[in-house]
């Protein structure tokens, strides 16, 4: 899994691509611990074509920290397979989910 981040206005855009499953989840976990993501964050999942419960768990962890710090978190570009995981677990209720990154950054 490839991870990159950039700034867009006062948002940080964290872009993930590839497989986010139990095998690649630790890689994202350590990346998040090493990097400072305070402030408003948008996670772009456009290039994520497979998400499992471990990947979901990490995203929910981010949501919890953002909520605790009263900071904004948005997800963007979820394809149907990724959306399905959020829906069947009801995790969608924890996230603001956008079609596109720039609409999220408005």
């Amino acid at each position: 899994m490839k991870i990159s981040s950039k700034k867009l206005g006062d948002y940080t855009i964290l872009s993930l691509s590839g497989i986010l499953n139990a095998s690649s989840a630790p890689q994202l976990k350590s990346y998040l611990e090493e990097t400072d993501f305070s402030g408003s964050l948008i996670i772009d999942l456009e290039l994520v074509d497979f998400l499992d419960s471990s990947g979901l768990g990490i995203l929910v962890g981010i949501a919890r920290r953002k909520k605790a710090a009263n900071e904004i978190l948005k997800l963007a570009n979820l394809n149907d397979r990724v959306k399905k995981v959020f829906e069947i677990t009801q995790a969608y209720t924890l996230f603001d989910i956008y079609d596109e990154v720039n609409a999220a950054a408005e």
Binding site: K83, Y98, D99, N102, A103, A104
Partner: peptide, 21 residues
């Protein structure tokens, strides 16, 4: 197509969330 929104979302937020649509 389908998408999820929050209970508190206003019309503008719904518009933003479904921009591609």
């Amino acid at each position: 197509s389908y998408a999820t929104i929050q209970k508190s979302d206003t019309i503008t937020q719904i518009n933003n969330k479904n921009r591609r649509f």
